[in-house]
Amino acid sequence: MAEDAKPRVKVPKSASVGEAVTIKALISHKMESGQRKDAEGKLIPRSIINRFTCDFNGANVIDVAIDPAVSTNPYFEFDAKVDAAGEFKFTWYDDDGSVYEDSKSIEIA
């Protein structure tokens, strides 16, 4: 597990049926590109989050492939249409095989 990887998400507590809500998701991660060299001139191996997904009640909302050009602490903001109360599940996939998860529930107002 990469050091200091810590997810943060923001989802409104409630929404009306059919409303598109704004979701913000961030994970702290150094996103080492694999192109940089250390003080001794050796290549620092690539270590990034390569995929991010968000599911709502089992249905996929967004599935993002991430490449090395994405900078430190990748941050995604997107809209999702809410038809019923339920739970947003967020998953980040690390190059080293680790998976980070977070979830937030939303109610219908």
Binding site: D4, K6, R8, K10, K24, L26, S28, N73
Partner: peptide
């Protein structure tokens, strides 16, 4: 606070 990138470091400090 969500858009403030400094909060990542605050989270780290809580740990």
């Amino acid at each position: 606070d969500f858009d403030n990138p400094g909060m990542v470091f605050v989270d780290r400090a809580i740990d």
